[in-house]
Simulated assay, not measured.
Amino acid sequence: MSVVYVHIGLPKTGTTHLQDRLWRNRDLAMRSSGLLYPGDVISDHFHAAVHLQPERYLDWVDPAFARKWPTLLAQMKAWPQTSLLSHELYATATPEHIATLVDDLSFADEVHVIATVRDLARQLPSVWQENIKNQREATFDEFLASVHTCGPALPGFVAPTDGAVEEPFWEFQDYIRILADWAQAVGPERVHVVTVPTRRDTPGDNLWERFLRVLDVEPAALTIPVPSLNSSLSAAQAEFLRQLNHRLQPTEVAWQRYERVIKGQLIGEILFEAPNGAPRGLTSDQRTWIAHTADEMIGEVRSAGYRVSGDLGDLAVSRLAAGDALPPTVQDVLDVALDTMAEMVKVAPLPAVGPRWKTRAMNIVRRIRRRALGVRRSL
């Protein structure tokens, strides 16, 4: 039977780790479990997701990659068993986009959807950091205030209409609305929620194993590991970057330069490699409303009848602050700024030196001027 699973994220739920591990083990997965992870390169899944939503991801839609989706589709059509698509940008697909994708997959006997979901207490600081890495300027408290005001699609919630700027969060983290949109297209019985564990010391119950359980794939057969990469900034590092963003807005710095210099070098090669502390955490007051929101969202998932791999209790938020990092001091941020500047100086290419003849000529001119000035003063 031909079955296609569409992993839609959510972003910041371990998706990059899962995708990297799936890609490296794709040949083993095909031989051992009949799972096809299609594509010629791993980025094919990204291009398929953005070309599904061209108006949403206009800056990333490149005509040179327009054939990536037809190629993935052809590979899945030729495979008689289980296929998997995976990219977190599917989380922002509208019902119209979803209908288009499901129609393209109509060759399959069944289409299933997988959403990896993590608790709000970990998601909120993580998403705020990701926003900061993409030229956003809002403080953590401003970000949380926006999240609180705008809210998820829960019964009785009315979104504000005052025109205030909404910080990016619910558009790709409101798993109540996102799951409902996909369930309308494939049926709630074919929607799978994989919860990100709160504990990492339980054998046989990590995110990778919970995810493969949905696909009926044996983890033991997929033996190629992936490196564990640090992708979190300390509270001081994030605040340094946020303040730096005030001087690096899109009107002043093109995205291509920001992506290469700030994301690639400053963040990827310097901040991630530096000794750092804990990221920003939540206050007790913030935890109160976040925990209440999480409880309501968990209730909606439970009543919707989706299949769950893991434990919905992993999505609950404790109302007690426990070791959450406090806002950094001015000195903390200054130390990060100076350390970062020092590292950039160490690796920066040396400035080009002019021709030696030009340097010698300028030195001769300077000596003649000094002598002439000395003669005039002696007179």
Results as ranks from 00 to 15, higher is better:
116 T>E: 05
64 A>R: 12
302 R>V: 15
170 W>G: 04
93 A>I: 00
296 E>C: 09
179 L>I: 07
361 A>Y: 12
102 V>D: 00
327 P>I: 11
192 H>P: 01
253 V>S: 03
86 S>N: 02
154 L>T: 02
88 E>C: 04
171 E>H: 12
372 A>G: 01
193 V>A: 04
19 Q>A: 02
295 D>L: 11
306 Y>A: 01
287 R>A: 04
26 R>L: 05
31 R>I: 04
44 D>N: 07
313 G>W: 15
182 W>H: 01
88 E>H: 03
301 V>Q: 14
372 A>Q: 09
344 M>S: 12
274 A>D: 14
17 H>F: 13
154 L>V: 01
277 G>C: 02
25 N>F: 01
155 P>G: 01
135 Q>M: 12
48 A>Q: 02
19 Q>K: 01
80 P>Y: 11
113 V>H: 00
308 V>Y: 14
270 I>C: 13
276 N>A: 13
269 E>L: 13
83 S>D: 13
239 E>H: 14
33 S>C: 06
51 H>T: 03
99 A>S: 13
338 L>D: 09
224 I>C: 03
81 Q>G: 01
71 T>M: 15
369 R>I: 11
46 F>Y: 15
153 A>K: 01
107 F>H: 02
279 P>H: 11
77 K>F: 03
280 R>P: 08
121 A>S: 03
256 Q>K: 15
325 A>T: 12
32 S>C: 06
26 R>A: 00
145 A>I: 07
117 V>D: 12
65 F>E: 15
240 F>C: 12
62 D>Y: 06
304 A>L: 12
43 S>T: 09
312 L>R: 03
201 D>R: 05
373 L>E: 07
335 D>F: 10
30 M>G: 12
211 F>G: 01
197 P>R: 13
277 G>L: 04
262 I>M: 09
77 K>H: 09
97 H>W: 06
240 F>Q: 04
122 R>T: 14
19 Q>P: 00
177 R>W: 09
88 E>T: 06
125 P>R: 11
285 D>R: 13
263 K>A: 07
2 S>L: 09
275 P>R: 08
42 I>L: 10
347 V>M: 15
166 E>C: 11
47 H>S: 07
329 T>A: 13
251 T>L: 15
146 S>Q: 09
217 V>F: 02
131 N>F: 07
203 P>Y: 09
129 Q>A: 06
150 C>Y: 10
345 V>Y: 15
245 N>C: 05
289 W>H: 04
275 P>I: 10
223 T>L: 13
155 P>E: 08
218 E>A: 10
170 W>E: 10
252 E>Y: 12
72 L>M: 02
169 F>E: 13
364 I>Q: 10
218 E>C: 03
73 L>R: 03
175 Y>S: 05
284 S>Y: 04
182 W>K: 04
197 P>T: 08
